[in-house]
């Protein structure tokens, strides 16, 4: 019955993401050098066996900083997506299930939020709230709520008409239980690709905000911040920009491939 199909995208995506996650996890506990430690004797060194990704203009080990920075970026992206997802599911479930004027009002607000380019809105929010990790998470999750809510809402509007939901009502199952125990598991498959897209947008948005200097605050390393610091030395120390940039690309690529692969799986 199962059609033999290649799941290359999914497998490659899992490999990339798996390796990245392992490295980031490693970086949370152990880095080859202290990511903040400066070594004036070893400034701007090319990759070698002592510093496998080289050192930056202060003599800091780039590999250690990439591990730390990727950890910060991941922390921000995961938290922003989780918070956005939580409220997105709540709002989407209620508007999709009940409909009516509440639905109209909330969805028009969502339209307004999505009408602005997300980076622009994030910039406005950050300039109001101030920069820093938790504010970036707050701003990004606010931006993500409408996109998740919209997907969840349309799924609920569709699912609530199906016989299994009518049947559950008939048995006397309570509405909250129908919404979150009966229907929600059927919404996940559709949500997965939105989650992957949201995660990638979060990684890129964090990098972009840190790049323009309104993201993560100074002592923390982040991939976007490293990218912006590295551009002054692009010709003298290209490994600096490349290691930060490639890490972002790999993070986004891995998750993107997984979501593509999941899509193929659904169609199979």
């Amino acid at each position: 019955m199962t059609v033999k199909k290649s799941h290359n995208n999914f497998i490659i995506g899992c490999c990339i993401t798996g390796v990245m996650l392992l490295l980031i996890l490693l970086g949370a506990f152990w880095t080859p050098y202290d990511a903040e430690a400066m070594d004036t004797a070893a400034k701007m060194q090319a990759p070698s066996f002592t510093h496998i990704l080289g050192t930056d203009n202060f003599g800091r080990d780039i590999f250690s900083r990439v591990l730390e920075g990727a950890g910060t970026t991941l922390f921000i992206a995961v938290n922003a997506v989780c918070a956005g997802l939580f409220f997105g599911i709540l709002i989407g479930a209620f508007t999709g299930w009940y409909g009516g004027w509440i639905d109209e009002v909330l969805m028009r607000i969502a339209d307004v939020i999505t009408a602005f380019p997300s980076i622009l809105l994030a910039l406005v929010l950050i300039s109001l709230l101030g920069s820093g990790k938790s504010n970036i998470i707050l701003a990004l999750s606010l931006l993500f709520i409408p996109s998740f809510a919209r997907v969840v809402r349309s799924e609920y509007a569709k699912q609530k008409e199906l016989d299994y939901v009518r049947n559950a009502k008939l048995m006397g199952v309570g509405t909250p239980r129908i919404m979150f125990v009966h229907i929600l598991p059927n919404v996940w498959p559709v949500l997965l690709s939105s989650i992957a897209i949201g995660f990638n947008n979060a990684v890129l948005a964090e990098a972009a905000m840190s790049y323009v200097g309104i993201g993560v605050l100074l002592p923390d390393a982040s991939l976007g911040r490293m990218l912006s610091e590295s551009q002054a030395f692009f010709f003298s120390a290209p490994w600096y920009a490349l290691s930060a940039g490639l890490t972002i690309v790999l993070l986004v690529l891995g998750v993107g491939l997984i979501s593509d692969g999941l899509g193929e799986w659904d169609n199979a």
């Binding site: 299994y164 008939l170 006397g172 009966h182």
Partner: peptide, 18 residues
């Protein structure tokens, strides 16, 4: 008490996730 229903479409009346 509690009349129940058998539905036409055995594909839609059972929760696919359970």
């Amino acid at each position: 008490k509690r009349p129940q229903m058998v539905f036409q479409d055995p594909y839609g009346s059972l929760n696919p996730a359970k």
